[in-house]
Computed example of a mutant assay.
Amino acid sequence: MTRLLDQIEVLGQILLDKVPATPGSEEAIRTAATAIQFIQDTGQSYDFEDYVQSIEAHAPPLAMGRFATREEAEAGMNAWRRPPAVAFVLIADVYHSAMYIPSLGKVRLVPLPVILEHYLADMANDGPKPSGLSFDSKAEAEAWLHQQPTPPQQVVVLIAGAPFLAAYHHRIDYRVLYPLPPPTPPASDVLETPRNDGPDAG
């Protein structure tokens, strides 16, 4: 596990060794050190470590909750004692930005389907290779996924011949199958216009 206090010492050493030339760098480093101290002092070290590991494993973008409907999401999040200022939540598997507006005392939800679209495009282009697992139906694949004692962060499986990403949202303990889009074809080279260096050129 990352030793957060060691990272604070590293940031302090950077300030002692050489004053950063970029305007605002010193304040940014001190803010980063304060943020690390906050994580440590509020007992969120393990949550932070899980978050770092999920990024390194290319897990789905972090979601703080999952709801079946928008109404359920609004009721559930407004009931939280301290709603997050900004966070991602899933509503029927669609990412939403949840923003708490203090002046209204309520959470505003904005759909952001592009979050999942970009993630799945990245997985299709640079994600894990096909695992070799194949299922005749999505129900069969879901049964397999929910039987796994340790959910995979991402595994590419075939369902009726089509590629799906078996993914795990670790923060909300949610396992899901996402259909993968076709990989983006490599950009074709632009053909240069042939040069005419003959005697009639120009």
Rank of each mutant, 00 (worst) to 15 (best):
Q53H: 10
Q53N: 15
A57S: 12
A57E: 15
H58N: 15
P60Q: 09
P60V: 05
P60A: 08
P61V: 10
L62C: 12
A63R: 03
G65I: 02
R66F: 08
T69S: 06
R70I: 05
R70S: 01
E72H: 03
E72P: 00
A73I: 03
A73Y: 00
A73L: 02
E74S: 03
E74Y: 00
A75M: 03
G76N: 00
N78A: 04
N78W: 02
A79T: 07
W80T: 07
R82A: 14
R82C: 11
P84A: 08
P84K: 05
A85P: 03
F88D: 05
F88C: 02
F88Y: 13
V89G: 01
I91K: 00
I91L: 01
I91V: 10
D93G: 09
D93A: 13
D93R: 15
D93F: 09
Y95V: 04
H96M: 02
S97A: 06
Y100K: 04
I101W: 05
I101R: 10
G105V: 06
G105K: 06
K106Y: 00
K106N: 06
V107Y: 00
V107C: 00
R108G: 01
R108F: 02
L112D: 10
L116A: 15
E117T: 15
Y119R: 12
L120M: 14
A121F: 09
A124N: 08
N125R: 07
D126H: 14
D126N: 13
G127R: 02
G127H: 03
G127N: 04
G127C: 01
P128G: 08
P128D: 04
P128V: 13
K129F: 05
P130S: 09
L133V: 09
L133K: 14
L133R: 12
S134T: 12
D136G: 15
S137R: 04
A141L: 06
E142D: 13
E142P: 03
A143N: 06
A143P: 01
A143K: 09
A143Q: 13
A143W: 01
H146N: 14
Q148V: 07
T150L: 07
P151Q: 07
P151C: 08
P151M: 06
P152S: 11
P152I: 10
V155L: 13
V155N: 02
V155K: 10
V155E: 06
V156L: 06
V156P: 00
V157Q: 04
V157Y: 02
